[in-house]
Amino acid sequence: MDNKMNFADILASTLHDTKNSLGVLLNNIDDIIVSCREKNCDRHAEFYAMQYEIQRLNNSLIRLLSLYKAEKSQLSANIDYQAIEDVLDEVATTHEILLNSRGIHLYTESEEGLFWAFDRNLVAGVLDNVINNAFRYAQNTVKIRAFTENGYLVLQIEDDGRGYPPSMLINENKQPEFKQEIDFKTGSTGLGLYFSLMVAGMHVNNDKKGFISVMNGGSLGGGIFSIYLP
C-alpha cells in the first residue's frame, strides 16, 4: 500500500482547519468590537485593523482552496439566476462596517430588477477579494456597479485610490493568458487576479466566455476592476 500522502492534499486539509479557526477568531473579534464600541474604548480602531487582516487571510484561504480544487478538476460552476441587487447588497453588508471604520463609503448601483445566470459563490469570492484590496488603497469611496453591456453582465468595482500598478493592468488587448511572475518581494502574488481570471473563464454561454479588465481612471480616478459574465 502506498502510504505517502500528497503534499497538496495535506496542505488543503490544513487550510480547512486554519480557515475554521479563523472563522471563530473573526466572530470573536466581532463581539469584542461591539462591546468596545459600547464602552467607548479608544483602541477600537486597532481591532478593525485586526479584523481586516483576518478577513484578508480568510479570503486568501478560500481562494487557495478553490484553486486547489480547480487543479484537481473538482471545481465546477453552479450556474443559476441571481437577483443582482441581492448579490450586491450581501457583498456590501459583508464589507460595509470595516470600510466605514476607515472612513470609506461603499456605494452600490444596479439596473433595477436585473437578473443574471452565474455562480454566486465564486463571483462573490472575486468581489470580496477586490473590495478587500480597496480597503487598503481607497481614500473615501468604493463603488460597486452592475450593468449589462454587449450581452455581458458587468460587475465593476471602482475606488478613489492611487490605482493599480501598470504591471497589473489587464484590458481587451492584454487579456487571455495570465503569466505574471509571482513577486515575493512586494508580497503581491497575483493570485487574486489569477483567481478572478479563472472564475471569469468558468462562465461560458453561447460561445461567449467571461473575462476581466483591470484599469485606472473612471469616475473616481482610482482603480477599476470589472468582471464580465456572458
Partner: peptide
C-alpha cells in the same frame, strides 16, 4: 451560508 459570516449577513439572509 459559508463560514465565517457577519451577523448582518445572517440577519439579512433570514429576513430574505
Amino acid at each position: 451560508i459559508m463560514k465565517p459570516f457577519a451577523k448582518e449577513v445572517l440577519e439579512k439572509r433570514i429576513k430574505n
